[in-house]
Design a binder for these strands. Structure first.
Lengths: 205, 205
DNA sequence: TTGAATACTGTAAATGGTTACAGTAGGATC
DNA sequence: GATCCTACTGTAACCATTTACAGTATTCAA
C-alpha cells in the first residue's frame, strides 16, 4: 500500500467511524482536493486489488473495509466500570463471577478510583432520588463519612443505604419512611462489609 | 413504533450487520415485497420522526441506526454532548452562545443522535426522580410520543415536563403536586418549541 | 528506454436511487 | 361522520453517483 492509498483508506475509516456509513467518491475527492471523481476511483481500485476494501458496482456508499487496522488513540480517558450482580458475602467484591456487564465511562465523569456499578433494586432510597432500575456508580472505599450513601453487604446481599456511626454501632438509614432504620452492632459489623460509597447515578429512559 | 416499523428496522439492522452498509430503498422493498419505493420511504420517515434512524437527503445507503437494541459489541465511540445554559426562544437551540460546557459520553449509553444536556433547575419533576442539579440528557427531536418527558421552550425558558397531546392543545404536566398543569393552546404552540426528549439523567454526589 | 504502476485532470454518458405527487384502503380516535 | 395515522400502489421527474473514455506527468523496475 502506498502512502497516498493509506491516507485514502484512513479517511474512509474516519468517515465510517463518525457517520457510520461510507463516503461517496465525491466526498473523498472533496477531502483531498481532487478535481475528478476518477482520482478517488483509481485509489479505490488499487485498494480493492490489494484486498483492503470491497464495494459493489454502481452502488453509492457501498465501500466495505476488509482489514481492521490499529485503532487511533482516543482523546478521552475511559474507565471500564464493572456492573456487578449478586455480591456474595464471602467473596471479594470484584470477583469475576459477580460481573454481569461492563460500562465504559469517561474517567472524569465521577470522582473516585475503583469504580463499580450496581443496578438499583427496590424502593428504599426513593427519598434520595434513587429508583429501581437506576445504575448506581460506586467507588470502592474502605471507609465512609457520616451521612454518605453507600453500598453495604449484609447477609449475602448488597444494599444501598445512608450510613451513620452511632454509639451502638452502624446505622443504616433508608430514604423512604416505609423502610425502618437498621442498626448493626459493632460486633456483628464484621459480617457487614462496606462495598463502596455512592458517587453518582445514571438513569436511562 | 408499530409492528411493521419494527420489522423494517430489524431488516435494516440485519442488513447492516451482514454487509456493513445500509440498504437502499429498493432492497427494503424487495425483502418485504413492496412494489413502490415509497412504501419503504414512508416507513423510514416514520422511524426517523420517532428517532430510530436518520439519513441524509438524496444519499443512497446513508441510513444510520440511532438506537442500539440488540447488544451489539461495537467499540466505544464517544459523543460530545453540549451542556446548554439559557435557551433563548428566538435562537436555534444549538447556537454556540448557549453552550456552557461539554460532556464526553459513550455513544451507546443513551439512545438518540443529537444529544444535549441541561442542568435541572427547580423541583417540578421530583415525582419522576429528577432533582435540582441533575444533568438531564436529551435527544433533539422534532416530535414526541404521548407521555414522554421533554424539554420545552416556552417564554424564553426551557422547562422539563411530561407532554400530552389533548383536544385543547399541548398539556405540560409537572411531576409534583405543588406545580399545576399547563395547557398550551394550538395557536400559542408556535411560541412553544420542543427542544428534545429526555433519554437519561446523570447525578453526581 | 521501455513498460507498468501510481497519481492525477477533464468531460460526458449511463444508470442508480430518491423524492414528489396522486391516490386507495383500513383502523383508531373523538 | 370527520379526521388523522398507518400502510401501501403507481408513475415519473429529478439529481446524485458511478463509470467510461481520453489524456498528462512521475516514479520505479527490468
Amino acid at each position: 500500500m502506498t502512502k497516498r492509498q493509506e491516507e485514502v483508506l484512513g479517511f474512509i475509516e474516519d468517515f465510517v467511524k463518525e457517520r457510520s456509513f461510507a463516503p461517496i467518491l465525491q466526498e473523498i475527492c472533496d477531502h483531498f482536493g481532487f478535481k475528478s471523481p476518477n482520482a478517488a476511483s483509481d485509489h479505490l481500485k488499487a485498494l480493492a486489488k490489494k484486498g483492503y476494501v470491497a464495494w459493489s458496482p454502481n452502488s453509492p456508499r457501498s465501500i466495505q473495509l476488509l482489514v481492521r487496522r490499529a485503532g487511533r488513540p482516543g482523546r478521552t480517558d475511559m474507565v471500564t466500570v464493572p456492573l456487578l450482580g449478586r455480591i456474595a458475602a464471602g467473596h471479594p467484591i470484584f470477583a469475576l463471577e459477580n460481573v454481569e456487564d461492563h460500562l465504559e465511562l469517561p474517567r472524569q465523569l465521577f470522582r473516585g478510583r475503583k469504580l463499580f456499578a450496581l443496578k438499583v433494586q427496590g424502593d428504599s432510597m426513593t427519598g434520595a432520588g434513587i429508583f429501581e432500575g437506576d445504575l448506581a456508580i460506586l467507588a470502592a472505599q474502605p471507609d465512609f463519612e457520616n451521612g454518605q450513601i453507600a453500598a453495604v453487604v449484609v447477609d449475602e446481599e448488597a444494599t444501598l443505604k445512608r450510613l451513620y456511626r452511632t454509639s451502638r454501632g452502624l446505622r443504616l438509614k433508608a430514604e423512604n419512611p416505609a423502610f425502618p432504620d437498621r442498626v448493626v452492632s459493632s460486633e456483628a459489623a464484621r459480617s457487614c462489609r462496606l462495598a463502596g460509597i455512592l458517587v453518582g447515578t445514571i438513569r436511562r429512559f
